[in-house]
C-alpha cells in the first residue's frame, strides 16, 4: 500500500475538518458585524492564494510577471461560466437536501479546478515567450498579456462583456477559500524543497550556470508559470463565487500590482513572507477604507500608500520583510548554531 498517499489524504481530511469546524465557529460567534469580519477573512484568504502563487513565478523562478490578474480573470470567468450556465441549472433540477448540497460542492470543486486548468493553459502560453525574455521585457509582456486577456473578456458578450456577469452562484465560502490556502502553501512549500523547486531557484540565480548544470531553463520557467497561474485561476474562481459578480474591471493590472506588492513586501522567494504580507496588506486595505471615509477623500488612498510602501521598501529593505528566508529560520538562528 502506498502509505504516503494515505498520509496526504488523511492530512487533507483533518485540515478540512478543522476548517469546517472553524467556519461554524465563525458563524456562531456572537460578534456584532460578524458578516463583515467574515468577508475580510475570506478576502485575506484569496489574497494569500494570489501572493503565494505569484511568489512561485516571481520569487522562486525569478520571472518578473505583471500579469497575474489576467490569469485570475481566466480562472474566474471559466469557473463562473461553468457554474452559471451549466451547474446551477443542473442543481436546480435536483431535489433540495443533502444530495443536492453534496453535488453542489463536487461541481464547485470541478469548476474551480477547470478554471485553474484553463488559467494554467494561459500561463503556459505566456510562459512560452518568456523563454526569450528577461527582466523588464518579460514584465512588460506579461502586463500586455494580462491586458489582452481583459480586452478579450470585454468582447465576449456571452459572459457579460463590459457589463460584467451578475448572479454568479454563491458557492465559495470560508471553507473553500482556506482549503485552497492550505493547498497552495503546502504545494509551494514541497515544491521548493524538491529538485523542481531547486531548479526554479537555479534559474532565478543564474540562468547560464543553471543551463550548464543540465537544468532545462525553458522547461522550468514555463512550469513555474503554469503552476502559479493555476492557483491564480483558483483564486479568481473563489473570488467570483464569493462576490457573486464578475467584471473585467476587477482584473486590471492594479490587481496584478497588488499581488506584486505582497510578494515584494514579504520578501521575494519567501512563502511565509508572502502569506504575512497578504495578511498585513489586506488588513491595511480595510483600515484605509475607513481613512477614506473619515477624511471624505474623493480618491482611494490605497494605491498611494502601496506606492509609497514599495518605494520606501526598495530604498530601505529591498529584500522585503523576510528576505528570501522563511519565518522559521529566524527562530532557528536565535537558538544558536554553535556546533
Amino acid at each position: 500500500m502506498r502509505n504516503w498517499l494515505v498520509r496526504d489524504v488523511l492530512g487533507i481530511t483533518v485540515i478540512s475538518a478543522i476548517l469546517i469546524g472553524l467556519s461554524y465557529l465563525l458563524g456562531w460567534l456572537p460578534i456584532p458585524g460578524m458578516a463583515y469580519y467574515n468577508r475580510v477573512i475570506v478576502t485575506i484568504g484569496i489574497n494569500i492564494i494570489l501572493a503565494v502563487s505569484l511568489n512561485i513565478i516571481n520569487g522562486h523562478a525569478g520571472q518578473f510577471s505583471m500579469g497575474h490578474a489576467g490569469f485570475m480573470a481566466v480562472g474566474a470567468y471559466t469557473s463562473a461560466y461553468l457554474t452559471y450556465f451549466h451547474f446551477q441549472p443542473f442543481l436546480a433540477t435536483m431535489k433540495e437536501g443533502p444530495a443536492q448540497f453534496a453535488m453542489q460542492q463536487v461541481l464547485f470543486l470541478a469548476a474551480l479546478l477547470a478554471g485553474g486548468g484553463i488559467a494554467a493553459l494561459a500561463g503556459w502560453l505566456v510562459g512560452l515567450p518568456s523563454l526569450r525574455l528577461r527582466g523588464d521585457y518579460l514584465a512588460i509582456v506579461t502586463l500586455g498579456f494580462g491586458e489582452i486577456i481583459r480586452v478579450l473578456i470585454l468582447n465576449i458578450d456571452k459572459i457579460g462583456g463590459a457589463r460584467g456577469l451578475a448572479g454568479v452562484p454563491a458557492f465559495a465560502n470560508f471553507f473553500w477559500v482556506y482549503l485552497f490556502v492550505c493547498i497552495v502553501v503546502i504545494v509551494s512549500w514541497r515544491l521548493i524543497r524538491s529538485q523542481v523547486g531547486r531548479a526554479f531557484l537555479a534559474v532565478r540565480e543564474d540562468e547560464i550556470a543553471a543551463e550548464a548544470m543540465g537544468v532545462n531553463t525553458t522547461h522550468y520557467k514555463v512550469q513555474a508559470f503554469v503552476i502559479g497561474s493555476f492557483f491564480a485561476g483558483i483564486a479568481g474562481g473563489l473570488l467570483g463565487h464569493y462576490l457573486v459578480y464578475l467584471n473585467p474591471g476587477m482584473f486590471q493590472f492594479t490587481k496584478s500590482f497588488e499581488a506584486i506588492v505582497m510578494v515584494v513586501l514579504g520578501g521575494m522567494g519567501s512563502i511565509s513572507g508572502a502569506v504575512l504580507a497578504a495578511v498585513i496588506l489586506s488588513v491595511a486595505l480595510e483600515a484605509l477604507r475607513f481613512v477614506k471615509e473619515a477624511f471624505g477623500l474623493t480618491a482611494d488612498p490605497r494605491m498611494v500608500i502601496y506606492a509609497i510602501v514599495l518605494i520606501l521598501l526598495m530604498r530601505l529593505r529591498p529584500q522585503g520583510v523576510l528576505g528570501n528566508r522563511e519565518i522559521g529560520s529566524f527562530f532557528r538562528r536565535r537558538n544558536g548554531r554553535s556546533e
Binding site: 474623493t298 480618491a299 498611494v304 502601496y306 506606492a307 514599495l310 518605494i311 530604498r315
Partner: peptide, 26 residues
C-alpha cells in the same frame, strides 16, 4: 539605487508610477 539589483529600480519605477497616478487623483 544605482548599484542595487535592477529589479529594485524596476519596482521603484512601478511604485513611482502608481504614486503619480493615484496621488494625481488626490
Amino acid at each position: 539605487l544605482r548599484n542595487a539589483p535592477r529589479i529594485a529600480s524596476l519596482i521603484t519605477a512601478i511604485g513611482l508610477s502608481f504614486l503619480f497616478e493615484y496621488g494625481g487623483q488626490m
